[in-house]
């Protein structure tokens, strides 16, 4: 039982270490693929919209949506 508990703890610890190592070497797509001549909008302002329903449409965009379109980073989900 002791070996099992230590094994589970070690698995979680190694998983967290892997998460930190992998996350530190990752960039968001809008950061990785943007150039001085091409801006890639971040998730939430693309085709699906922040609510994953195709919105915001004209007239329904919020201030936050406008900020995103301008390129100011928010806190999108990592994928």
């Amino acid at each position: 039982m002791k070996a099992f508990a230590i094994a589970v703890a070690a698995a979680i610890a190694l998983g967290v270490l892997a998460m930190l190592a992998l996350t530190s070497s990752q960039k968001f797509a809008y950061q990785a693929f943007a150039t001085s001549g091409a801006r890639v909008s971040e998730p939430g302002t693309n085709l699906v919209g922040s609510k994953w329903n195709g919105l915001p449409v004209l007239g329904e965009a919020t201030v936050e949506d406008h900020d995103k379109v301008k390129g100011e980073a928010s806190h999108p989900k990592r994928s």
Partner: peptide
């Protein structure tokens, strides 16, 4: 599914070590 994906990607490392 999001958390399942996290667990799949990160627990793959202790699995490979094991």
């Amino acid at each position: 599914a999001q958390w399942a994906k996290y667990s799949h990607v990160y627990l793959a490392w202790p699995f490979m070590l094991g």
